[in-house]
Write a protein that binds this DNA or RNA. Structure first.
Length: 203
DNA sequence: GGTAAGATCAGC
DNA sequence: CTGATCTTACCT
């Protein structure tokens, strides 16, 4: 089963998730942009920008669970963002799904996102991706590899990948933990967080 | 019990 | 650059 390919560190898992097909509520889409997130300071991948950095809490508990689960959270009170949990059970690690290319169910995605949105931008950005696929907070913790799940994922082959700094994070902003498929127009434009210290500064 | 910050997005 | 909008986590 494919899920074992995600029982690895967040960086390897991120690369393996590029090209995967995400199937959710009438829409399927190919993942074209992701970001890796680690865990607490004394773990294998210390990551101050990760929700799990300060240990398990009510919100982030899914990140500490087994690989292949969906970890959703609400961002700025408005949007939902989706992660695929990686690493082994008890170890925090996840990959944020940042952008995807809608392959089927385009009219459904278009209805969810609004008529003014161009097809290439339907699932561009983590909040928009969840909106296009119909992912909500009720989906937090579901198994993305179970036949019965409303949201599923199918891993693909290794692909040609570009790496760069993560978007939006105010800590560890220089870390090249963002990965994109090369030459995909659905990838979101890079924007450094206005709250992040200047490039090269420590935080 | 109060509150500040936030892995975002769209519109000036 | 800003406002929208709300949950969590941490503080007193």
């Amino acid at each position: 089963m494919n899920v074992r390919r995600l029982s690895v560190d967040p960086l390897a898992a991120a690369r393996r998730l590029l090209g995967a097909v995400l199937v959710g509520r009438g829409v399927s889409a190919v993942v074209v942009e992701v970001e890796a997130y680690g865990g607490p300071d004394h773990g294998s991948w210390p990551d101050p920008a990760s929700h799990s950095y300060r240990g398990p809490t009510g919100r982030n508990s899914v990140m500490f669970g087994p690989a292949g689960r969906l970890y959703t959270y609400r961002s700025h009170g408005i949007h939902i963002c989706a992660n695929v949990v990686c690493a082994t059970d008890g170890v925090a690690g996840a990959v944020l799904l940042r952008a995807a290319k809608v392959e089927s169910g385009l009219p459904v995605a278009q209805r969810r996102r609004g008529d003014s949105v161009r097809p290439v931008a339907l699932a561009r950005g983590p909040g928009n991706l969840c909106s296009a696929l119909g992912i909500t907070m009720d989906d937090n913790g579901i198994d993305l590899f179970a036949r019965m799940s409303p949201i599923r994922i199918v891993l693909g082959e290794q692909q040609s990948v570009v790496e760069g700094p993560r978007v939006g994070v105010s800590k560890a902003a220089d870390r090249p933990w963002r990965f994109c498929l090369t030459g995909r127009p659905e990838v979101s434009l890079y924007r450094r967080s206005p709250r992040a210290p200047a490039p090269g500064e420590s935080d």
